[in-house]
Structures are given as structure tokens and as C-alpha cells.
């Protein structure tokens, strides 16, 4: 079967690639565009390691077919730090030691940013339920939740300042 030409926007830049049938957005990002920050932990939408934003909505990129992103806007972990500065979430993950092996971290950061974009002042319970689609096997989530809550507080302060 022939490949499909796809034009999309990834982290603000135009990107083009050829999608073979059955190729997922995750495959396209990793194998065609060289963006390996999104990870495949399950390939079935259960672990969240491949989380990206598609037109401002949090998705598992392993569940999106690559041609579906034609003309749409994709944001990945690679676009989170801006101008050589870590995003406050990234900084707080480091300060709170919210990662051990780090494999789930890109997905958790993308999902956390989506949370704080939608809800700048989440309760701990809201944060836990929002992030329930992102598996972490190392940390027990304690430090991740603390990092997200701390980043939320800092971002709120930045907004009011």
C-alpha cells in the first residue's frame, strides 16, 4: 500500500512526513520526525507515556493514526521548555525528585501541563484523577503530585504578579 503525505505543525513548526498505513502519531513522531521524547509503554492507551497535545487536547499518540494530524497542531515534550528555560513543571519535577527512571516523565509532564492549563488550582484529588492515565512504576506518585501542586502554585503567582 502507498504512503500518505502528511503536513502538520509540531511544536510550532511545520512538519511533513510520509505515513505508511497503520502508522500511529507516536510512530511518526519517533521514527519519521526524530522526536523520541514521547515513549511507547503499552501501545494501547493505558500508560500515558506517549501523551502529546493535539489541537490543545491531551491524547495518547499511540491511539492517533498519523494521517489524522494533517493540518492540525501537535505539541510534544520537546516543545515544553521555551527559550532555553525549563517550564515551571519541569523545574518542579526536578526539585521534588519526582522522577526516578524518567521514562514516564515526558508523558506525565505533558499531561500535567494540560491539567494546569485547564485547571490552574487543582485539588490533590483532582490532580490524582487527571493523572490517573499516566502510569509511573518507580515513585508511588507522591513526589509527582507534590511537584504538580507546587508548580500550580508558582504559575498562579506568576499570573497574578
Amino acid at each position: 500500500m502507498s504512503k500518505t503525505h502528511v503536513t502538520t505543525t509540531v511544536n510550532g513548526d511545520t512538519a511533513e512526513f510520509l505515513a505508511s498505513p497503520g502508522m500511529t502519531l507516536l510512530d511518526a513522531l519517533r521514527d519519521e520526525l526524530g522526536l523520541t521524547g514521547a515513549k511507547e509503554g503499552c501501545g494501547s492507551g493505558d500508560c500515558g507515556a506517549c501523551s502529546v497535545m493535539l489541537d490543545g487536547r491531551l491524547v495518547c499518540s499511540c491511539l492517533v493514526l498519523a494521517p489524522e494530524v494533517e493540518g492540525r497542531r501537535v505539541e510534544t515534550i520537546e516543545g515544553m521548555a521555551q527559550g532555553g528555560q525549563l517550564h515551571p513543571l519541569q523545574q518542579k519535577f526536578l526539585e521534588h525528585a519526582a522522577l526516578q527512571c524518567g521514562f514516564c516523565t515526558p508523558g506525565l509532564l505533558v499531561a500535567s501541563k494540560a491539567l494546569l492549563d485547564a485547571n490552574p488550582d487543582p485539588t490533590e484529588t483532582e490532580a490524582r484523577y487527571w493523572l490517573a492515565g499516566n502510569l509511573c512504576r518507580c515513585t508511588g506518585y507522591d513526589k509527582i503530585i507534590r511537584a504538580v501542586m507546587d508548580a500550580a502554585a508558582e504559575l498562579r503567582q506568576e499570573r497574578t504578579a
Binding site: 519517533r30 522526536l35 523520541t36 521524547g37 514521547a38 515513549k39 511507547e40 510534544t76 515534550i77 520537546e78 515544553m80 521548555a81 525549563l86 519541569q90 519535577f93 526536578l94 526539585e95 525528585a97 522522577l99 524518567g102 521514562f103 516523565t105 515526558p106 509532564l109
Partner: peptide, 18 residues
């Protein structure tokens, strides 16, 4: 802060499949 931290929060760290 861990020395490999920036690599791991930006997606740069290269794991087995990367």
C-alpha cells in the same frame, strides 16, 4: 537536582528504543 535531570524532563534522554 539530579545531574541527568534536564535530559529526563525534556525528552532528550535516550532509552532502549530511542
Amino acid at each position: 537536582i539530579r545531574p541527568d535531570g534536564a535530559d529526563k524532563v525534556t525528552g532528550r534522554a535516550a532509552y532502549g528504543a530511542d
